[in-house]
Nucleic acid binder design. Sequence first.
DNA 1: AAGACGGGGTT
DNA 2: AACCCAGTCTT
Length: 348
Amino acid sequence: MTSITKKLLAWYDQEKRTLPWRAEPPTTQDPYKVWMSEIMLQQTTVATVKGYFDKFLKRWPTVMDLASAVQEDVLAEWAGLGYYARARNLHKCAQMVAIDYQGQFPTTYQELVKLPGIGDYTAAAIAAIAFGESKAPVVDGNVERFITRLHRIETLLPQAKKEIKAETLSLTPKDRPGDFAQAMMDLGATICSPKKPKCLLCPIQTKCSAFANGDAETFPRKPAKKTKPTRRSLAFILRYEDQILLVRRDDSAMLGGMLGLPHTPWVERDTLPDLGESLTYSPGRGSFIKAGETSKHTFTHFHLITDIYKTSLTNKINIENGEWVRIKDIKTAGLPTVFMKMIKSISD
DNA sequence: AAGACGGGGTT
DNA sequence: AACCCAGTCTT
């Protein structure tokens, strides 16, 4: 075992960890909890995940329970967490584990990585943390940062990935590979941070090339990001008595499978049709009036500005994939944040 | 290899 | 406003 590995594990052991999905040794890690937490943690912070993890475990305590759920319920519980393909794949994966593996998660990287929603990182993490695999290096954003600083790897991501994995593998101990993976990730989250790394507190400071060179913060090296375009749309709030019309979105659409408001396509700033044309996207043909403030929301790859129009209907219409929801139930209906913002922006 | 895919916290 | 995050999937 390298001295870096020893120092990292020693540092990890003297930290207090209270994450709900982490068992204390010698308790065995529950693969279901490890899997659930790793899926939720993809591109998502620990603080955000905690509440969702508790909700999911309480409602579906085992993978068999989750496999038996209906997709709409899983998506509704996931609402607000983002990257909704994760929720669709979570459900599908649970059903595959239930049917193809009799409710027992496969134990190897090679089998895990075949399951929906489990990619290179997550398969390695589950294999290491739940099953003690030491041959599959666990490399997430934290590890990329830690390793590129440790060795001052100047290659741009993602090209540097291969070298990072090789270095990670050479540090990973046969004993406690899961703890070591978590140690690297915890160090990356708390000390080897993206901005203003706390090198003075770092247990491997004397081993770190970037610290010696005084340029830790410049790693990892990445290509410049493109600026996000702005798109516009109109959304429609149709009321009948105390209810609002929502629409179940196609699985293939953005926010796929989720409930949302009816709206025009999201288009570049200059190509938005006028209200008259836009109403062809509305299920109603009532007298719409502009409502509340313009709603703004930023997705991964574009900004969205939406004007809200509302109308009150005197008779209830029924449309394909439409669902009437009582206003008092909106908060628990399972709406993505972009639609919650729109509804919130009209103050009536 | 590059782009799509959410949302919230930090800087 | 830009950057980041315990990434995966599709093209």
